[in-house]
């Protein structure tokens, strides 16, 4: 596939009953770019990622990932994507090594390569001493590291990372950020990040999109987004785009509940 665009979505929509989770989304993300999708809780970020990974079927519209159609070429889409879920649900009764072996098998990674990669991941995330413990005994941060390793184990061409640094301590978060930067720069991977953490978006993303109630409100580089609303920083820009009224968040009485 010589498709230049990693992701192309046209009027992609998803309805849950009467609720519109994603509304006519249009995306054009070139290969080798880091794209950040920002938005409040329930904005439609996770649904977008699930649509693009062929996990759920769109109600209308269409999309291509690496030139593969998300509706008719699900197998190819899934084989080439790595998806880190927002709330990673692991098999608690497996050890980290067993779980990673299982995920590697699912993507048909050769056995020897699986073991080599597992060793590297465990070393990178400092999990070597706990590799034979059941995952139910892991902290949330440790589970997040295992999930990240599972996302990368088949060396996908596109990575969809939903809150990749959630639950991680600062050192581990730094490792993950460096890893993402390296994956894009040195391995020419495309990374699609969903996050609430604006500093991560600013540091890692070439382009960001802000989504609310299923509608993509704005798209551009962090600088372009800030400039579009005359904001000094991304947090200001985010607030202005999502809460444009002058009597917005800053004038709220936060102690009214007392």
């Amino acid at each position: 596939m010589l498709e230049k665009l990693a992701i192309k979505a046209q009027n992609l929509s998803k309805y849950y009953g009467k609720l519109c989770a994603v509304d006519s989304l249009n995306l054009k993300i070139p290969r080798g770019q880091t794209y950040g999708l920002l938005g409040p809780n329930g904005a439609g970020k996770t649904t977008t990622v699930r649509l693009l990974n062929s996990i759920i079927t769109p109600s209308s519209g269409d999309a291509e990932v690496l030139g593969y159609n998300i509706k008719s070429q699900k197998h190819q889409v899934k084989s080439n994507c790595g998806f880190l879920s927002e709330s990673p649900s692991l098999y608690e009764k497996l050890t980290a090594r067993e779980f990673l072996e299982f995920v590697g098998d699912l993507y048909s990674v050769p056995k020897s390569l699986i073991h080599k990669r597992i060793d590297e991941f465990l070393k990178m995330f400092d999990l070597e001493k706990r590799e034979n413990d059941l995952l139910e005994g892991y902290s949330r941060g440790m589970k997040q590291k295992v999930c990240l390793s599972a996302t990368l184990i088949h060396d996908p061409k596109i990575l969809f990372l939903d809150e990749p640094t959630a639950n991680l301590d600062p050192i581990s978060a730094r490792i993950v950020k460096n890893l993402i930067l390296d994956l894009v720069k040195r391995a020419n991977k495309t990374v699609f990040i969903c996050t609430h953490l604006l500093d991560i978006a600013k540091e890692l993303c070439d382009v960001i999109g802000i989504i609310n109630k299923g509608v993509l409100l704005i798209e551009g580089s962090p600088k372009e987004v800030m400039a579009s609303v005359n904001a000094n920083n991304l947090e200001d820009a985010y607030s202005k785009i999502l809460n444009p009224s002058p009597n917005g968040a800053s004038n709220k009485d936060y102690l009214s509940w007392r």
Binding site: N53, K78, C81, F83, S85, P88, S89, Y91, L106
Partner: peptide, 11 residues
Amino acid sequence: IKDVILSSPVK
């Protein structure tokens, strides 16, 4: 079913 399986090429 867990996301890890849903996002893999499993049919």
